[in-house]
């Protein structure tokens, strides 16, 4: 599905990414975890075609990414900067569908269906300022779902909401993934989260970032916020990833 080959990027003479290799298989959910400021967002922006990396290649289904690929959607961390405040929830979800040649009615129906999936059936005509942060991020997720991308990128999607909402949203992502055959790349700084939602966890070093390890998460599905986190396998994985980043104090006590 997605293949990143020796990707490197520098802003001016500041090197942020130093040769990243990673891949996401069809229907796979890969978490990328790393200390903040290590270049995770730069990685995501390169994959999304928002910036042109200095070196290396991003391939989606074998085709190099030049501009923003058609089959790709992104959920950004800061919903307040990615949801359009002048559009209702349904309007936000329906807007990207314009380029799919759908009729006005079909767009609206697709938007309502997507909002229903994220549990916002009754809020289609609400405006962002009338919704809580968690609801707004659900709208952003619905927008990505309605777009029906082959690859979904999520950039710290739960970092701006409170702990309870965060757990709900993690489960929401797992649920929609079970329903759609979608490949997901989720970027996070939270080790627990990366293990909880991921099929595989890719660990980055601090800037200039490289991949230190790629661990397969062998946990039973469906996952459960309490039971899964109690499993010995979960605790072991978490410790292992923690150890991988030990000695990097910038990860400890972060945010």
């Amino acid at each position: 599905m997605l293949k990143v080959v020796n990707l490197a990027h520098a802003y001016g003479d500041q090197q942020v990414l130093a040769g990243i290799d990673l891949s996401v298989g069809d229907g796979e959910l890969v978490s990328v975890v790393g200390p903040s400021g290590c270049g995770k967002s730069t990685l995501l922006r390169s994959i999304a075609g928002l910036i042109k990396p200095s070196h290396g290649q991003v391939l989606i289904n074998g085709v190099p990414v030049e501009q923003t690929p058609d089959d790709l959607a992104v959920v950004f961390q800061d919903y307040s900067r990615s949801l359009f405040p002048w559009l209702s929830a349904a309007g936000n979800v329906a807007l990207p569908l314009r380029r799919k040649g759908m009729s006005r009615r079909a767009r609206r129906e697709a938007a309502l269906a997507a909002l229903d999936q994220v549990g916002l059936a009754g809020s289609a005509d609400k405006y962002p300022f009338e919704m809580s942060g968690g609801m707004q991020q659900r709208v952003a997720i619905a927008r990505a779902l309605a777009y029906r991308p082959a690859l979904l990128l999520m950039d710290e999607p739960f970092a701006s909401v409170d702990a309870q909402t965060r757990e709900d949203l993690e489960d929401l992502v797992l649920a929609v993934r079970a329903n759609h055959n979608m490949s997901i790349l989720l970027i996070t700084h939270d080790i627990d989260e990366s293990v909880y939602v991921g099929d595989r966890v890719v660990v980055l070093t601090r800037s200039p970032a490289t991949v230190t390890e790629s661990l397969t998460v062998d946990l039973p599905s469906p996952r459960d916020q309490i039971a899964t986190r109690e499993l010995e396998a979960f605790v072991r994985l978490r410790s292992e990833i923690g150890r991988l980043v030990r000695g990097r104090p910038d990860l400890v006590g972060e945010q």
Binding site: R45, A48, G49, L50, T68, D70, L72, A73, V74, F76, D78, R81, S82, F84, L95, P96, R98, R99, R143, Y147
Partner: peptide, 15 residues
Amino acid sequence: VERGYLDTAAVFGLG
């Protein structure tokens, strides 16, 4: 204009 708005528009392929 907020850069996030433009990024979002670019990602979702608005012309």
